[in-house]
């Protein structure tokens, strides 16, 4: 019983640890008026991604309505989100599922 309790506590600890380490996603949303070329330029300048990755992300936004463009710590996610909003894209942050 004690061993079983200890095992359960370990599992709970691990699960809490995983929960706190879940990354934050920066999401960019589609809109009908922003030119595709604009989105590619913003991704390249804000994240420094290669052209092919920027184009792939832009097409994901265009076809699926949204794309996760960066994942990581909350503070940096919010900072990137602000940069994207300052560049005129619709962007939010959300906890990774």
């Amino acid at each position: 019983m004690t061993a079983r309790l200890a095992s359960t506590e370990r599992e709970l600890d691990q699960s809490a640890s995983v929960a706190t380490q879940r990354p934050w996603n920066v999401v960019v949303w589609n809109d009908p008026v922003t030119p595709m070329a604009v989105v590619v330029v913003v991704f390249r300048r804000v994240f420094g991604y290669p052209e092919a990755k920027c184009t792939h992300l832009m097409l994901t936004v265009h076809h699926e309505g949204r794309a996760v463009v960066w994942s990581g710590g909350r503070e940096r996610a919010e900072s990137y989100c602000v940069k994207l909003q300052v560049a005129g894209l619709q962007s939010t942050v959300e906890r990774d599922d």
Binding site: D31, V33, A87
Partner: peptide, 13 residues
């Protein structure tokens, strides 16, 4: 210039 024009575009939309 680019950011300001894009912010205006999205705001108008």
């Amino acid at each position: 210039w680019f950011c300001t024009l894009q912010v205006a575009l999205r705001s108008i939309a």
